[in-house]
Write a protein that binds this DNA or RNA. Structure first.
Lengths: 268, 268
DNA sequence: CGACGAGTTGAATGACGTCAAACACAGTGG
DNA sequence: CCACTGTGTTTGACGTCATTCAACTCGTCG
């Protein structure tokens, strides 16, 4: 995994490049807390709730879930599950950064969707005895948890509220995928990138029409999520800044006109 | 709905164009059984089972579902639900042909996904209080059924097996959408069309490598499902037949080399 | 016959990918 | 301090694929 080894080598240099930040790993303190020793431990209540959505789970539901959860550790760059591998369990990442995607012919990994823990890697395939439709890889040391299908199924019979939450989680994923499909069908590259920017936009204190977007990944990974090449992404950023919509310094985008970006995002 | 009015005017002419079938509506006998009189009736057991998947529902579950189901009739060309309309219920079509898509600026309807009853139109949005992400239109007279979210939720508390089936249905949709997204991201137009053909391929009796594909829709609708233009679809068919993979007569494709199509479908 | 809609075909345009070179920066070793 | 290397990004030239636009065919319907 040579492509990501620089992730380890930065912790010191990060402070130096404050404004001109040229590398994406401006991780908030604590986020890079090492997964050591207890890395195969079970999720806490916060993780379960974030995964399964409101309303919060009761103590007995939590312990029942923990009873069937199978924690597992995956080293950075490791494969959580492979393409076309039979899914026997629901899989999620408790902590760390993973990505769904597929391997290319030249050995690199094309990211379709990043998953930041806690978040699902595959909550659907196991229910229908299907194979995982994509591959999942660990972009950082990863604590993953598997919930064997049979066990969850048994648990649903006695915990009716759990079923409600599983349904909610699946519904959220359907919704997200439907929007994604729609975007890929009808929107061109500028529209998709503008949409991506608007989704991550954080308005500044003084004005709601301008603010910043922090890029937390390599630009090539952002590009592959948008189904474009890094070169096209670079040209799009230049094009947008020539139009006065934003300005780019390193991995920080200063947005000057959100409405303009929204217009581009819609008009695909 | 001038674009589809010819659907009504064909039943007689269909026999004439037997081999050279130039129109898509070679509907099997019975499929065009009119929705008259009892069109707002409730689904039967077969429809429920097809919708919710195995294992089959018990009698009490069926009656409980029928108790909360709200049947509705939508005339051909009518809008079942609009884009961005708040979803308060799960919606499916009991009988008839519908399509999910979005209206274009020139008034036509761009089909993203056809739905042949019984099948879901939106089983996810209501669970997360989201708006319908796309529009749904009736391509034929339509019997739709709505299941108010609150009622299904209440029913899940007393019918644990129902929850299992809702989860299965959602999981199937996630799986289908994931494959679709993957295809749009990585496959070019020939690969997507080849995939479409392979999926609808019916092998002939004598040889498993050749057979036919019946196009049940207008070619322009097939094209819009593949996110390409009708012109491109036409050129693809010509290109494939020049390569000896198939031959096209009207709305019937005679496939000569499925393996070749599979190869193209994979090599995107 | 004339109008219309579906499909096909060809030429022109444009969007995006590919390839190659250059640049920026971090880390390494002198 | 300074080359030197490895990785990531940017830029330009160029090619390819798919859309757009316009003509044309075919069959149906009035």
């Amino acid at each position: 995994m040579g492509t990501m080894q620089f992730a380890e080598s930065r912790q010191d240099g990060a402070a130096i490049l404050a404004e001109r930040a040229l590398h994406p790993l401006d991780a908030p303190p604590g986020a890079r807390r090492a997964l050591r020793g207890a890395e195969a431990s079970l999720p806490d209540a916060r993780a379960w709730n974030e995964l399964l959505g409101a309303p919060a789970l009761g103590a007995q539901e939590l312990s029942a879930l923990n009873a069937i959860a199978r924690p597992r550790f995956v080293p950075q760059g490791g494969v959580v599950f492979a393409l076309h591998e039979a899914a026997r369990a629901l899989v999620f990442v408790r902590e760390g950064d993973a990505a769904l995607g597929c391997a290319t012919q030249d050995g690199t990994f094309r990211i379709e969707r990043p998953v930041h823990g806690p978040g699902w890697l595959d909550q659907s395939s196991a229910w229908i005895d299907a194979a995982h439709p994509v591959e999942a890889r660990a972009m950082s040391p990863l604590a993953v948890v598997e919930l064997p299908r049979e066990d969850v199924q048994a648990l649903m019979l006695t915990q009716p509220l759990l079923a409600r939450r599983l349904v909610t989680g699946l519904a959220r994923e359907v919704h997200a995928l439907a929007l994604c499909t729609h975007g890929l069908m009808h929107k061109d590259a500028p529209a998709r990138f503008a949409q991506w920017l608007v989704a991550r936009f954080q308005p500044s204190a003084e004005s709601s029409c301008c603010g910043i977007v922090k890029m937390g990944e390599r630009k090539r990974d952002i590009a592959s999520q948008l189904a474009i090449t890094p070169e096209t992404l670079s040209r799009l950023m230049r094009s947008f800044s020539r139009q006065g919509l934003l300005s780019v310094t390193g991995y920080t985008v200063h947005v000057a006109d959100v409405q303009g970006l929204r217009r581009i995002a819609e008009g695909g």
